[in-house]
């Protein structure tokens, strides 16, 4: 690049960046411009659908638009990294799941820590349910524990990583040992389960409702969150690991901003997100999608988040060996 061109470019950058930087970061005015909303997963996934649903009411609630950006890659850590690169002014928000925490816990060269984020709130959570074949001796929890204790490591459990973390924690508390078969997608694990190639699978509620009772029976809910009464009945009232006193974790959809963002802004954002979730149209769309709003405010979400990170780190090492 010739030197005059460089000078022009530097000058242009300076003028623009001065214009941008002069805007003070204050919670009072927040938000006074478009918010970039990072969904670190591919378009069409759960985080993406939630983000796009919320963006439909952003203007009514915030007075500003939300621009959803899908930045997937490296188990959702690329999107997180992008948030950390941007200013800590609350104009870059991320909606994600436990997936990047799992990745960061197993990656020796991780560029940042799972705690490098300021949790704003939880907006939902999914439950992990273990399914087994119906109408056999160990189709219920009691029979399963007895069978698994008599045949340690014989039962195969196919699942994606997050449900596997839940299952491993709960089974360990129950003194049960199964063989964990990792799958990259739920559709693959369900196909192998239906074909009789694995004995048990870990799935989310909606998948479980598809398969129970004809093709599977629900063994146990391995997450902290209990099932709603209606769904629990539909699934044949499986036991709840938390109620049995087992160790469990939650799989939340959590919203976060840059860790250096002022608390006032994070608090305001949390309130606004709650307001967005309460909009009729949002409720309607989410209900249609079969998604459940489980709002956890900032203080509580931060505590639960710490527990989740600890739980995942503990299990990640177990799965390696």
């Amino acid at each position: 690049m010739t030197s005059w061109l460089k000078k022009i470019m530097v000058a242009a950058t300076l003028v623009w960046s001065v214009a941008i930087l002069n805007a003070p970061v204050q919670a009072g005015d927040y938000p006074d411009k478009t918010i970039t909303w990072i969904a670190p997963f591919s378009a069409g996934g759960g985080a993406d659908r939630w983000s796009r649903t919320l963006s439909t009411v952003a203007f009514d609630v915030l007075g500003q638009a939300i621009r959803v950006r899908n930045i997937p890659g490296a188990s959702a850590t690329v999107g997180w990294q992008e948030m950390l690169k941007r200013p800590a002014d609350g104009y870059t928000v991320m909606l994600t799941s436990p997936t990047p925490i799992i990745a960061l816990s197993t990656e020796p060269n991780a560029p940042f820590k799972p705690t490098d984020a300021k949790v704003v709130c939880y907006i939902s959570a999914f439950r992990g349910i273990i399914l087994v074949k119906p109408n056999q001796k160990w189709s219920d929890w009691k029979g399963f524990v007895a069978y698994a204790k008599a045949n340690p490591g014989k039962i195969t459990l196919g699942s994606t990583f997050s449900e596997m973390v839940g299952a491993q924690l709960a089974f360990k508390s129950a003194g049960v040992k199964v063989k964990l078969i990792p799958y990259s997608s739920t559709s693959d694990s369900v196909t192998d389960f239906l074909g009789g190639h694995v004995d048990a699978i870990g799935v989310t509620e909606s998948t479980a409702l598809n398969l129970v009772p004809e093709k599977a029976s629900a063994l146990i809910n391995v997450t902290t969150l209990p099932l709603s009464k209606k769904i629990s009945e539909k699934l044949g009232n499986p036991p709840h690991a938390k109620a049995l006193g087992f160790k469990t974790i939650n799989f939340p959809r959590w919203v976060a901003v840059h860790p250096d963002t002022p608390d006032a802004i994070a608090d305001k954002l949390a309130v606004k997100i709650k307001e967005m979730l309460e909009q009729k149209s949002v409720k309607k769309i989410l209900k249609k999608m079969g998604e459940e709003i489980i709002y956890v405010p900032r203080a509580q979400a931060q505590d639960e988040f710490k527990d989740m990170v600890k739980g995942i780190q503990e299990v990640a090492t177990v799965l390696k060996k």
């Binding site: 242009a12 950058t13 623009w16 214009a19 941008i20 478009t34 638009a65 621009r67 959803v68």
Partner: peptide, 16 residues
């Protein structure tokens, strides 16, 4: 298509 691009440093046009 919804990508967040700018014309010159800091100069953006909203396409929403």
């Amino acid at each position: 298509l919804g990508f967040d691009l700018s014309i010159a440093p800091g100069l953006k046009v909203e396409f929403l």
